[in-house]
Design a protein around this nucleic acid. Sequence first.
RNA 1: GGGGGUGUAGCUCAGCUUGGUUAGAGCGCUGGCUUGUCACGCCAGAGGUCGCGGGUUCAAGUCCCGUCACUCCCGCCA
Length: 593
Amino acid sequence: MHPYRTHNCGELRAEKVGTTVRLSGWVHSKRDHGGLLFLDLRDHYGLTQVVVAGDAPFFNAVEAVRVESVVTVTGPVVARSEDTVNAALATGEVEVRIETFDLESPALTLPLQVAGGQEAGESVRLSYRFLDLRREKMQRNLRLRADVIAMIRRRMTEQGFLEIQTPILTASSPEGARDFLVPSRLHPGRFYALPQAPQQFKQLLMTSGFDRYFQIAPCFRDEDARADRSPGEFYQLDVELAFATQEDVFHAVEPLLRDVFAEFGSRPVADGPFPQIAWRDAMLRYGTDKPDLRNPLEIADVTAAFELEGVTFRAFRSQIEKGAVVRAIPAPNAAARPRSFFDGLNRWARDEGAAGLGYVIFDEEGGKGPIAKFLTPEAVSAIRDAVGIGPGDAVFFVCDQPAPAAAFAGTARTKLGEELGLIDDSVFRFCWTVDFPMYEREAETGKILFSHNPFSMPQGGLEALETATDPEDILAWQYDIVCNGVELSSGAIRNHRPDIMVRAFAIAGYSLDELETQFPALLQAFRYGAPPHGGIAPGIDRIVMLLADEPNIREVIPFPLNQQAEDLLMGAPGPVSDEQLREVHLRTVLPSA
RNA sequence: GGGGGUGUAGCUCAGCUUGGUUAGAGCGCUGGCUUGUCACGCCAGAGGUCGCGGGUUCAAGUCCCGUCACUCCCGCCA
């Protein structure tokens, strides 16, 4: 007989009754009846009830064992009597009457409870992550993560993509997030950087002729954490295709994502191809570049209604004269809501830093509410038509410069969707946001900046760059994929033409020299025959987080850093010896207290 | 860097609004009892720098100031 087990703790069924088995696992719980004692023995696969008779020579040893100790037991599988079957347990029709008991590894008193639903605070959980990961939810989440990655690997490989590893020690790049740096021992004063993404390497692989590449790639960015953003490192499904259009990229990943969510998600994926929404439309209708399409509300621009003859609402008109716009968010069936509903939203808007949230309530006769008296019947009907509502509904207004107005209207749309109970939680709704602008103007300085990836191909190519009257009008072959308002990924058709690249960077104020020194590899590579190519890189952690229905990304990462980017279990970041510092030619200069 | 929330037993939390006897509960832990439980049950017990420092007060877990930690958000994330 195997020294530890003949079966795992989740597989015994009635047909094994009469056989003698050996099980090993953790003592999940213990129920001591004095003359009879039950143990639930747990491993990754499940729970099995083990019975110890009162006359067993090892009875006292079992009584003394603490939960979460590891034990090995041997004995016959016995059918439970009808009234003692536990239907909640997969192994609940049987139990093991044990004849041997070995304590393999005793457990101290626990700093957090593994059995039972009680969840400890995060610092305790992360300090004792090895215990926390024993909990059923964490076992399930990490198994889900493994299953998702396995399916992705299989499907990508089947589609002819080659999985290729790229370096972890690479060069710092001036664009993007803050780098993690690694000092060089052999080259005093020089540093490696951990890659923020394998972006340049995958483009080099395209240039090398690998045609279709993917990788479950670790990415390192020294940026502050959020609930959906793990500090330090995260994983992407990094994908790149040669000779590809935007639609080719979509065809490579849309069916995969649909199937991953359909197979592993607790909810269905909405039918039909993922809608493609132009960035400008998304900003207007949803107030964000990552619209949550489970929320049916759509924002409309109603600036013109407030400029109509006879409309005397000065608070908006004076702002409109200074370039502001008015955005309207519908609130279907809100007319019957009490005054406190509207006051509460107004207070919420102020807490969010907005001037307020004006509103008009519509009934059969027209508009009502604090600002209705400043509106003409023509303005009221213009608003009603623009927003597409009628009697019994209400509409909320945001007035500000276009960008902040869009953003706050988006926040208000989400808030209203929640308050009115309109968000459909029973489905995954994907969309593509497409046609991102290539450039944007910095508000304070008026300077033209790349709005996203500087290596994206401008739509219209060189000609568009040379003929555009305003760089802000130039669109890029740049896209995001969004699920339920969560941005899963950005991607782009890349700019593989050195001449277009030089021109694109010139518009953003980079000289050829700067381009050559800051991005030497790509520019050099593209001078030796580069295929048109493009790709995308969906975030694995976020996908699993959505599938697991977890509000926090750390719930699907085995050993995450905490919000201060510390590993409380391993003690990272930690001090190193003077000798280690000398070897890499470093001396620390700590901030003065 | 900024804003919000939280910090009380090993763990999860109540008590703080309105200061006042010995700071409580559940789980866990220790001892005892218990032969069909599966959140087993019953009895007893141990366990507290109320995050830390200062202040107000006859009296502070409770009020004030500072500080630290954790967390959520803003900034940041080509």
